[in-house]
Design a binder for these strands. Structure first.
Lengths: 164, 164
DNA sequence: CACAACTCGTTGACGCGTCAAGTAGTACGG
DNA sequence: CCGTACTACTTGACGCGTCAACGAGTTGTG
């Protein structure tokens, strides 16, 4: 066993900041979704589909884009399909694969929630920051995020070659 | 209804980064705790107590310091008391109040988990960043965090005058 | 002292996320 | 073709967090 390497003071400060954001901002943000009978997972799914050219993704890609596990996607998709926000279709060439498509109703749901959501995020997180702080934050988080995504593919895929 | 104010591109980038960190790093970090039969909540509770001069906090302060709700604290405390990591004592002057104290065993639990935890956080988040990025990140997150904590007291307390 | 209003902490029901197991479909080696 | 290995997705059990309701203790008012 070698001597453990601790976080330096700056890193501890940053980590503590993450914890506060996760513990205090996210639940507050979640409330907007609950007020519309949904969860942030649902919203993430709708956004992922809306950001796709033909509003359609196969489920495994959808799970990846929405930063969720396949089983969670499966569970939450049930409600979205029941509500008519998303429709599911079998792939014609591969019977295992299914595709999810954002319906017109799903688009409307998204439009109904988005303003309040953006407002929450801005108010809770970004209104406190100067433009320079925001830029630096985006830079650091993007760096971390891309590292995390690469790391993930490394662990789960065997070089899956998914988009990007 | 006025025109909604959206997030600008930088803000969106930062927010997306938060989501990725939240969805990919935290579960990974949680694994270390689960390997020791605990959750991150438990760890946060132990840390909060360890950071206090006499290793003792009344429960409401503990909940606040550990960024958790009172009921969650109550639920998770059960296991920590059973394990003997924390002991609970009634306040002698106010029958409603209880105090939690970190035991010697709790201290040992903390020491056993901390190295692996610090390692995870460093590896997943900070190893990717330059020193300048880390500093900027800590600065931005601290700013947001202090805003969130003030905001919280504003909503729940009636000017509770809790420490700080 | 009585009674209302309040605070501190606990509890239980309920819905969500995880994990491991399961079903169904595909690829491939012989 | 047959069987094995693999992939895509689904399901159910289980433990956690939330929320609302609760019991217990305290404070304030007349």
């Amino acid at each position: 066993m070698t001597e453990p390497r601790w976080l330096d003071e700056t890193q501890q400060q940053a980590w503590q900041g993450f914890l506060v954001v996760f513990a205090r901002a996210l639940p507050e943000i979640e409330r907007t979704f609950k007020a519309n009978g949904l969860l942030s997972v649902h919203y993430g799914i709708l956004v992922a589909l809306a950001d796709t050219p033909d509003r359609t993704l196969r489920l495994s890609e959808l799970a990846d884009t929405a930063n969720t596990s396949q089983s969670r996607l499966s569970h939450r998709l049930r409600k979205l399909v029941e509500r008519g926000d998303v429709s599911i279709a079998d792939d014609p060439t591969d019977g295992r694969v299914k595709h999810a498509t954002l319906t017109r109703r799903g688009r409307r749901t998204l439009d109904a929630i988005s303003p309040a959501h953006a407002d929450n995020v801005r108010r809770l997180l970004f209104d406190q920051l100067s433009p320079e702080q925001t830029t630096a934050l985006a830079d650091a988080l993007s760096t971390i995020a891309s590292g995390l995504c690469d790391h993930d593919r490394f662990r789960t895929d065997g070089m899956g070659g998914l988009h990007r």
